[in-house]
C-alpha cells in the first residue's frame, strides 16, 4: 500500500515555477548583461615609430595601421636621411591611435620589461644596433638604442617585439623564443 501521497501535477507546477524563477534570477543577476558591444581594441598597436637622433639630425621610421588587422593596408614612412658613419640615439615608440588621446603602449612594455624585448635586425651588415636600457634583472629591453651606421648601402631594418622571450638570450630573434607582438620591416637607405 502507498505511504506516499504526492500529487504529481502539483509537483510539476512547483518545478515549473522553480525553473521560471531561476531564469528570472539568472537574467537579472547577470551584471554583465550589456548591449553596447562596440569594444575599443585595447591592446592594439596602430603605430610604431623608431626615431634616430644625432645632434639636430632626426630620422624617423613610422609604421601605421590605424584600423588594425584587415581593412586598409598598413603604411610605412620615413622622414630625414640616414648618413653614413654616424652614431644615432634611437628610441622606439608604440602607440594605439584609435584611442584619443593616443595611448602610449611603450610604457606597458617598459613596465613589463622582464617579459619583453625588442630585437633590431639590419640586412646592411655595416650597421650596428645596441640596446641601452635594462629590465629589473639587468637584461636588455631595447626601447632605447644606439644606432651606428657604416658605409652607404640599401637594405631593410626589421624591428621585432617579443613577449615572454627567453631572457637572457643570445640576441638573435630566432633563438629568443616567445611570441611576436610586433614585427615591422622598414626599407633602409644609408647615404
Amino acid at each position: 500500500m502507498k505511504d506516499f501521497n504526492l500529487n504529481p501535477i502539483k509537483n510539476l507546477k512547483l518545478i515549473a515555477l522553480f525553473f521560471a524563477a531561476s531564469i528570472a534570477f539568472t537574467s537579472c543577476s547577470s551584471d554583465d548583461d550589456d548591449h553596447d558591444d562596440h569594444e575599443h581594441e585595447e591592446e592594439l598597436i596602430t603605430t610604431v615609430t623608431y626615431t634616430l637622433t644625432s645632434g639636430t639630425d632626426v630620422v624617423t621610421f613610422t609604421f601605421q595601421d590605424l584600423d588594425g588587422e584587415g581593412g586598409n593596408e598598413p603604411t610605412y614612412n620615413q622622414t630625414g636621411t640616414l648618413l653614413a658613419n654616424t652614431t644615432y640615439a634611437g628610441e622606439i615608440e608604440l602607440l594605439n591611435e584609435t584611442e584619443s588621446p593616443a595611448e602610449d603602449i611603450t610604457h606597458e612594455v617598459e613596465e613589463e620589461g622582464d617579459d619583453h624585448e625588442f630585437f633590431y635586425t639590419s640586412t646592411i651588415s655595416d650597421i650596428s644596433i645596441t640596446k641601452d636600457d635594462t629590465d629589473e634583472d639587468g637584461n636588455p629591453i631595447g626601447i632605447e638604442t644606439t644606432f651606428t651606421t657604416g658605409a652607404a648601402g640599401t637594405g631593410s631594418l626589421i624591428v621585432v617585439l617579443k613577449h615572454e622571450p627567453t631572457k637572457p638570450n643570445d640576441g638573435s630573434v630566432a633563438n629568443a623564443g616567445g611570441s611576436t607582438d610586433v614585427e615591422v620591416t622598414f626599407p633602409l637607405t644609408v647615404q
Binding site: 554583465d32 548583461d33 550589456d34 548591449h35 553596447d36 558591444d37 569594444e39 575599443h40 581594441e41 585595447e42 591592446e43
Partner: peptide, 10 residues
C-alpha cells in the same frame, strides 16, 4: 551576448 570589457572586438 558578447560581453563588453574584453578590450577586443568580439
Amino acid at each position: 551576448d558578447a560581453i563588453s570589457g574584453t578590450g577586443v572586438n568580439p
